[in-house]
Design a binder for these strands. Structure first.
Length: 354
RNA sequence: AGGGGCGUCGCCAAGCCGGUAAGGCACAGGACUUUGACUCCUGCAUUCGUCGGUUCGAAUCCGGCCGCCCCUG
């Protein structure tokens, strides 16, 4: 019998994914990754993918399905691959996406390796995305539910990893997932979708970084594009490109963060129309749809999770680097975020913006 | 000291031939969201430097005082 390890977060999606995999006749093992020491973040409750409460929800579902359930302690790996990189990126003035890193390192490397060690053929997650095997090659596609599509956070999957992954929810609508959970009486059927950074449940990531590093990030200057001082900022890790709220600077027009300079500890503010640009460079690019990408191709691109795709021309500038030139200028390109390129339903590849 | 100007929410700023306080920024709360942001919705001056006067009624007219700015000495 084919064996699958189900990554169960305790949420509805992965719970239903487990059920569907079992239905298909796989031998299933449920597993939750323990990623954070309970005192690292103030994880008393709610909204996180790894609180004790969530582990119990996952355990409850596994029990109901009659499958074995494990908790893997990956706190050291999570610290190294996700938290430290997250903090480091902010210290360098970038805007990281920890969910991407968690997928890349925790789910698709550490957990997948563990699954294979346990004799599993597949790792199953509750992501909304689809995998297609055509002509002996694996492709990553968007989910059927366009409102829930999560292919953006999966662009780093290699062909080898894809051959061991299953996304049972790829053809479901979110509402259908909830219905199934409801019908099966899962405890989490009506649980709220997760949001915020899981290791920063209250959303105050800057406070998290300060308490984690025990550093205090010095105040600095807000300046306009001409270099005129506009005010004082509260430590540049608190700002990201395109940000408007929380600047505490009043003016006749809304002001946004245009640029951050870690070197001089300066944050440049400008009006919205100054935030648009037409091109960007991407590094650590992972091509899914090509072994050798064409030098140049037309595609549509997302430069943040929730953004409609933008038409662009892609230039493969190196093994893992790409230059993207948009047809129309795009707002607030943020280094550290991921750029993912699509051709229709297909994810061509993606990488990190520099 | 004399001449001129100004004083409206934390900031900017309408209103000023009287009729019962626009708007923007900031801020707060909510929605959206497996990242940070953006966006959207809601809230946000019983009060117009102050004290009097005129009037049915004043932020708007008049006078005193206080404060600030500019010019002249």
């Amino acid at each position: 019998m084919t064996k699958a390890l189900i990554a169960m977060s305790g949420g509805v999606d992965s719970s239903v994914a487990a059920y569907l995999t079992l239905e298909k006749g796989f031998e299933c093992i449920g597993a939750t990754m323990r990623l954070v020491e309970n005192d690292t973040a103030c994880l008393k409750t709610a909204k996180t993918c790894c609180s004790l409460e969530d582990v119990e929800d996952a355990r409850s579902v596994a029990y109901r399905l009659g499958i074995p359930f494990y908790v893997f302690d990956f706190t050291p790996e999570f610290k190294k691959y996700v938290i430290d990189r997250f903090v480091c990126a902010y210290e360098c003035g970038a805007t990281p996406n920890p969910c991407i890193e968690c997928n890349r390192y925790m789910k698709f490397q550490v957990l997948l390796r563990r699954a294979i060690e346990l004799g599993c053929d597949y790792l199953v997650t509750g992501h909304y995305a689809r995998i297609e095997n055509r002509d002996g090659r694996y492709y990553l596609l968007k989910a059927r539910d366009p409102g829930k599509d999560q292919s953006y956070v999966l662009y780093m999957l290699t062909l080898n990893q894809l051959s061991h992954m299953l996304f049972p929810l790829g053809d479901l609508l979110k509402s259908e997932t909830r219905q199934i959970a409801e019908k099966l009486g899962f405890v989490n059927a009506r649980k709220r979708d997760s949001q915020d950074i899981c290791f920063v449940p209250d959303g105050d990531y800057a406070a998290f970084i300060e308490s984690y590093t025990q550093k205090k990030y010095p105040i600095g200057k807000f300046v306009d594009e001409q270099g005129n001082e506009l005010g004082e900022h509260k430590g540049f890790i608190r700002y990201t490109i395109g940000q408007r709220k929380g600047l505490n600077i009043s003016s006749s027009k809304p002001l946004y963060v245009k640029k951050k300079d870690a070197e001089s500890n300066t944050v440049v503010l400008a009006e919205n129309n100054r935030l648009y640009s037409t091109g960007l460079e991407v590094t650590d690019f992972n091509w899914i749809a090509f072994d050798t990408p064409p030098d140049k191709l037309r595609a549509s691109v997302k430069i943040r999770y929730s953004q409609t795709e933008q038409p662009a021309t892609i230039f493969a500038t190196g093994e893992k680097t790409v230059r993207i030139e948009f047809d129309n200028s795009v707002r607030a390109i943020s280094p550290g975020q991921s750029a993912v390129i699509y051709d229709g339903e297909y994810v061509l590849g993606g990488g990190t913006i520099i």
